[in-house]
Design a protein around this nucleic acid. Structure first.
Lengths: 210, 210
DNA sequence: ATCGCTGGATCGTTGAACAATCCAGCGAAA
DNA sequence: TTTCGCTGGATTGTTCAACGATCCAGCGAT
């Protein structure tokens, strides 16, 4: 049994609370409070803060405190710029049959969630889908970058911002992208994915200011 | 005047020593030693370690210590996979005249360094060149990702591993890429850049084991 | 209404402490 | 001789208490 360090567990707990919407963007995290709540020392909390700040989930303002990251002007475009770069590049390079199967699995996961009217599940299925696309490239670094980006998106574009209308759109689209990938039509898969990302960026921009 | 926090300065100092080759891959960094050397407390060193570990420059092995990151099997390919994704994607999207001018400036910087037989300068000129390409995309996130990748490369592929033969190769090539970019031939610029990255990966793989 | 001060809260950093863990070396047993 | 197991020392993980520095809200004086 491996026991993750305490600092690691604190970071994990905070990540969880961020993803779950327990901690909303802009909220202030006071070291002493968190330390007491989680029953750890202030120094340990500090280490966890350093880690999450490096992942852009928290923002450190010297001598003022750490805050849950907020969406600044241009951040939406910024995030999607990264996604276009790594997702499109990954899918264009194709991948092993196992990795492609993982993409397919995410598509099916989405369908099942749709049938079950499981909005929660739909969201994570979509994240699995895009994560699986990046995983095609077999690059640890790209995977962690993508994981961080997805964590940011969970934080910013929380459940509340997503509606069923959104989902029906990309359920079909994911299917098409996956089919193209399976058929080896990598260019087409890339184009479809790129189009999706562009449209998704527009939608998110429309919803969230600027 | 803003005074960076002590932890930040420690991290900066370590980054410097890593880039300069003062600390070689695999070396062990003992908390107490670093703390004493830099005249700071152990806790502060710890925070700096956390930051650098997040940048993949240091590796933390629980209960054993932190070590300067070493090149594992597949890491070269991994790094170049990231570079292909973000550099090619950035250049294909073009950029503002100012950003393009920055790319040109890096090319000229390289030429001057070559004339002056300044190997040191040649290396950083090349890094500036590729950094400027990513900067075309105007994405903070891509910029920091690229900065981290370049820091990793400085660490792994240190001066010793580079020879003059290398340089003459890409000096011309950078010129071509930049010209294509300036001429608006983005597809061609992307193809040239991609070819360069592929070749560079091969060379590095040939030099370093695996 | 503005300015400047002050007190309290929080951060940044330190130093010391102690348990948990690892590791090299050494001695005992096969 | 080789292997096994133990022990002691070194280092890490974590906590705690302290103190100066910095920020901020409130309040009083102009």
């Amino acid at each position: 049994m491996k026991v993750p360090s305490v600092a690691e567990r604190v970071a994990e707990e905070l990540r969880y609370q961020l993803a779950e919407g327990f901690l909303v963007p802009g909220a202030k995290l006071t070291e002493a409070t968190i330390a007491e709540d989680l029953g750890v020392s202030r120094n340990t909390v500090r280490e966890a803060f350093a880690e999450l700040a490096g992942e852009r989930l928290l923002l450190r303002q010297p001598n003022k405190g750490v805050f849950v990251a907020t969406l600044e002007a241009g951040d939406i475009h910024d995030v999607y710029t990264v996604r276009r770069a790594i997702e499109v590049s990954s899918i264009r390079a194709g991948g092993s049959p196992e990795r492609i199967a993982a993409v397919r699995a995410a598509v099916e996961e989405g369908k099942r969630a749709a049938e079950a009217n499981d909005n929660e599940g739909l969201g994570s299925a979509n994240q699995h889908f895009h994560g699986a696309i990046v995983a095609l490239a077999e690059s640890n670094r790209l995977n962690t970058i993508m994981a961080q980006i997805l964590a940011e998106m969970r934080l910013y574009f929380h459940k509340a911002t997503l509606n069923a209308h959104f989902y029906s759109d990309w359920l079909k689209e994911n299917e098409q992208i996956c089919s193209a990938l399976e058929a080896g039509e990598l260019e087409r898969a890339g184009d479809l994915l790129l189009a999706y990302l562009n449209r998704s960026e527009q939608q998110q921009t429309a919803i969230h200011g600027e």
